[in-house]
Design a protein around this nucleic acid. Sequence first.
DNA 1: CCAGACGTTGTT
DNA 2: GTCTGG
DNA 3: CCAGACGTTGTT
DNA 4: GTCTGG
Length: 229
Amino acid sequence: MCGRFTLTADANDLQQAFDLRTIPTTITARYNIAPTQPVAVIANDAPHDLTFFQWGLVPSWAKDTSIASKLINARAETLHEKPSFRSAYKRRRCLIPANGFYEWAKTPTGKKPMYIHLKDHQVFAFAGLWESWHSPDGDEIRSCTIITTTPNALIKPLHHRMAVILNPANYDLWLSGEELPPDILAPLLKPYPSDEMIAYEVSPHVNNVGNDTPDLIQPYHPPTQGMMF
DNA sequence: CCAGACGTTGTT
DNA sequence: GTCTGG
DNA sequence: CCAGACGTTGTT
DNA sequence: GTCTGG
């Protein structure tokens, strides 16, 4: 799945990768983006602008925002039928730029965090959905969720779900505001090729959402357990 | 008709 | 908002 | 995703 | 154990 990720590309890289109208001025390198935080998105209602939405979908009918942290991911297989996602799937799709993401691999000694990124180090885009929610006092909250699918060979040992990374050739189609037939969109939501990605262990510092520094993505070699005699 | 849910991951 | 369960 | 809280009444 | 906050 995807519960933590990075966005370290600079403004020029982002403008180029996503054909943005202007060079973003509000972007800073992030090494530990967590649910409920603002994330950079390119939404289909302004497909050449980078904006910030809250991570965790709040459907328009929600009474409050407490549902958000449960809706940080959306299963690709059932988007069209789930009340929380289907209207966004029809009309409110977005790109969520990232340079990499974290997975926590279960081991007999506990969970160890892994960092995964593209071999060519390029910025990529998760397939996302977005919503606009109006609070009782009239504020608008825009939120988003990251779509997941089955894992590729690299991720499979770590988790049974992985985030959808879109092929750049499909950015325009994904961002069309049209209600497209299922057989047009569904093929985009497939596992990214594992031979273009790499994974390695990182320090448990990433566990704490308050940590957000470049050392989080450095390869980590856990101290070996000494003999106790 | 109204009331209540609406989700994922992971674990059992 | 829209569907399901009662 | 992980970390941290998990309660009330009343007082400052 | 389960929910909330980040």
